[in-house]
Design a protein around this nucleic acid. Sequence first.
DNA 1: TCATTTGTTTCATG
DNA 2: ACATGAAACAAATG
Length: 259
Amino acid sequence: MPELPDVEIFKRYLDATALHQKIKQVDFGDESLFQAPLNNFEEALQGKELTETTRKGKYLFVKIKSEKWLVLHFGMTGYLKYYKDQDKPAHTQMLLSFSNGFQLAYICVRKLGKVFLTQDLDEFYKKHDLGEDALDFTKKDFDHFLESKTGSIKGALMDQSAIAGIGNIYADEILFQSKIHPKTKVENITGQKRQLLYDKMKSVLKMAIVKGADISELPKDYLISHREEGSSCPICKGKIKKIKVNGRSTYFCPQCQKE
DNA sequence: TCATTTGTTTCATG
DNA sequence: ACATGAAACAAATG
């Protein structure tokens, strides 16, 4: 679930809580999430402090003072929790305990997240074939992106090497707001449709961030809370359909989004 | 027990 | 050679 807006909210949460405090202790959960030996993480973090964060697509990068970047990917079920005097949350995979008594937990129920260390962000982007962040795209970038792709528009929007941050749920939302059928071939999106898609991509992502990536807070005319076969379309009251596009469950309104 | 969920990776195909 | 998309994979839930 954590897509661009969710990870942006995690970033702001971490910025507002866990920065600039000495890390007294580091504990780990399941080793399989960690993309380097646990010792490396321990050594990099122990006694240090976190100084800044940055985000690209669905990745969150956390700078360790005088050290490397800690890189967090949240998989399907990951999130952060900062707290004091509470039990460690279930499924905590990494726990940083600070000298002020607070703790930051990286929680991952289904263990599909990943944690990395890197010296160099650009190198990391390259190695993981990470495209430019969707919010940093200009219209010119977007035109170039569409011209470079073939196949379905939904597949293109979810291609992290071309445009980083959009996952299954927000791809559906952006296409719904743009009234474009998810299977539409990229080459058939031209002119003002292209401008509309670009504008909606930005406005949907920004709206989600403003609302704290809380689905229940999003506007009533969003598809996002009607992601169920047969649910009624918030625009035309038609029936929402579920199909597979690029192997992913895709919800759309056949009346609003003609092929 | 198995289908379902996600993003990423891997592999076959065009 | 390359891009696309289908399938596999991780794990847990109902």
